[in-house]
């Protein structure tokens, strides 16, 4: 089977993100897609990141790899990965982390494969760019042959016929492509995989199966996984911890059972209520009235206040305090359940 990811002497959490702030420059003004996000992710842990469409999940995920469009700007913050802050690194330095240490499964994973090359070739290409990680040293041809065997192994791991590695992307079905992309993300034996809605484009049954496989691979390889989705049911299934994002900010963070059974933030409660499948009750969807706010000129005070049933005057004027501590907190003036601050 595949080897465990390499361990280094650094013993803190694998990933610590502090006050990460990311803006897009547009004609309308700066879009504050990620604003002061702080969290950490331990080795072998799964952190689920949920939030409505447009709340900045993808921006955050891409920001961690510093793969941003030209109009984006990393305003401030630290991305401490395995003891090293990635924020000040340039593109050439980042390249050593990309895929080798932090891999990604994209939101539109179906389109993450280049149509003109064979699938296996695109995986080998990544391994070659990182000096064939996990392959014994030797002549180029021999390393390539070994790497091909490795890719076949990965294909079996994700439930694909190894023969498919010599097919072109258009010859595979959506589910197969998705699995191939997952195999590709594992090829350089990363420590962290960022999965950005990896299954949304697939039908529910395939989605479910791939999700379960991803989870078991994560366990087997001891990977850390940052799982981004808008579907709280998915998070409940895969994540050890949940982060809830609203309008570019992290508003609640905690252990999955905790957050799901006793949400502190009213937005989390609303989000859970809008997904009836969690508690098995049949309730109408859209328990969250209103629209997500503009990220160019977000509401003052608590950004959720225009939609919050508990909003008061101080919510509208003052930035809410953080209640709770460590890896279980919410940013709210009037959190649910907990004692009033």
């Amino acid at each position: 089977m595949l080897d465990q990811p390499s361990h280094t002497p650094f013993t803190g959490p694998l990933l610590q993100v502090r006050d990460l702030t990311l803006h897009y420059r547009t004609r309308q003004g700066d879009v504050r897609a990620v604003d002061g996000v702080t969290f950490s992710l331990g080795r072998g842990q799964v952190l689920g990141l949920v939030g409505e469409s447009g709340c900045g999940k993808t921006s955050l995920g891409m920001g961690l790899l510093k793969l941003l469009p030209s109009n984006a700007r990393l305003v401030r913050g630290e991305i401490i990965f395995d003891g090293q802050d990635l924020a000040p690194l340039n593109d050439a330095q980042m390249r050593r982390y990309r895929w080798r240490r932090i891999a990604m499964i994209f939101q539109a994973a179906m389109n993450a494969l280049d149509p003109v090359y064979r699938v296996g070739e695109q995986i080998l290409e990544a391994m070659e760019a990182h000096a064939w990680p996990g392959i014994e040293d030797g002549p180029a041809g021999q390393k390539r042959r070994q790497a091909r065997e490795k890719v076949k192994e990965l294909f079996r791991l994700v439930g694909l016929d190894p023969e498919l590695m010599d097919r072109y992307p258009h010859e595979l079905s959506g589910g197969m492509r998705q699995r191939a992309v997952i195999a590709m993300s594992l090829a350089c034996r990363p420590d962290l995989v960022i999965a950005d809605e990896p299954t949304t484009a697939l039908d529910v049954i395939v989605q479910e199966r791939i999700l379960r496989e991803l989870k078991s691979i994560q366990k087997e390889l001891g990977l850390s996984l940052l799982y981004i989705t808008h579907d709280v049911a998915v998070v409940a299934e895969v994540a050890d911890q949940v982060g809830v994002m609203y309008a570019g900010q992290l508003v609640e963070l905690g252990d999955t059972p905790q957050v799901f059974h006793q949400p502190m933030h009213p937005y989390t409660a609303g989000l859970l209520a809008s997904f009836p499948s969690i508690r098995g009750e049949k309730r109408p969807l859209a328990a969250l009235p209103g629209e997500p706010p503009s990220l160019v000129a977000p509401p003052s005070g608590c950004r959720f206040h225009p939609r919050c049933p508990r909003a008061t005057k101080e919510c509208r004027q003052e930035v809410p305090p953080v209640v709770g501590q460590g890896n279980a907190w919410a940013a709210c003036w009037h959190p649910l359940g907990a004692a009033q601050p």
């Binding site: 390249r95 990309r98 990604m104 389109n111 494969l113 280049d114 003109v116 290409e125 760019a129």
Partner: peptide
């Protein structure tokens, strides 16, 4: 295209992203 972002995420050198992926598809 997404596969260009993917190529970058894979840590491929810029020249490879440009020539092997972007230009090769732009050729069609």
């Amino acid at each position: 295209e997404d596969y260009i972002t993917a190529a970058r995420a894979k840590g491929l050198p810029e020249k490879v992203v440009r020539d092997r992926h972007a230009a090769r598809n732009a050729l069609l």
